[in-house]
């Protein structure tokens, strides 16, 4: 249960981080005050996740925190890509090569 919560916190932090990027603004329009909320969540959620991990397992908590963070980042990025595709924006990106 704690690990699910940690995963959710990390995902929220990554989601807010992506929402704060200028390129995402057009696909996910922001409301007034959303920037500060996103910034706060981005800063606090990983700290809270770390606290939970250390509370759950003081010796190995840091490893859970890092591992779950990577997993959450990966899943959030895939989710974000799918959502953007649904909104028909993915193909607007230019090819790098």
């Amino acid at each position: 249960m704690t690990f699910l919560l940690v995963l959710a916190l990390w995902s929220a932090a990554f989601w807010c981080h992506e929402c704060l990027q200028p390129r995402t603004r057009s696909s996910f329009p922001r409301q007034a005050g959303a920037v500060s909320v996103n910034q706060i969540v981005r800063a606090l959620a990983p700290c809270l996740a770390l606290t939970l991990c250390l509370f759950q397992d003081p010796a190995l908590g840091i490893f859970y925190w890092l591992g779950l963070g990577s997993a959450a980042g990966l899943s959030t990025s895939v989710l974000m890509a799918v959502l953007k595709q649904k909104r028909g924006l993915a193909r607007m990106s230019k090819t790098p090569l």
Binding site: G69, S70, A90, L97
Partner: peptide, 27 residues
């Protein structure tokens, strides 16, 4: 940090996959 465009052009998708794995799992 979590930019991934799997539905974009093929090279873009592969570069993004390379970068996202490298960045998120860097530690």
């Amino acid at each position: 940090l979590i930019l991934f465009r799997p539905f974009g052009a093929r090279p873009r998708a592969w570069v993004d996959a390379h970068l996202i794995m490298g960045v998120l799992f860097l530690p």
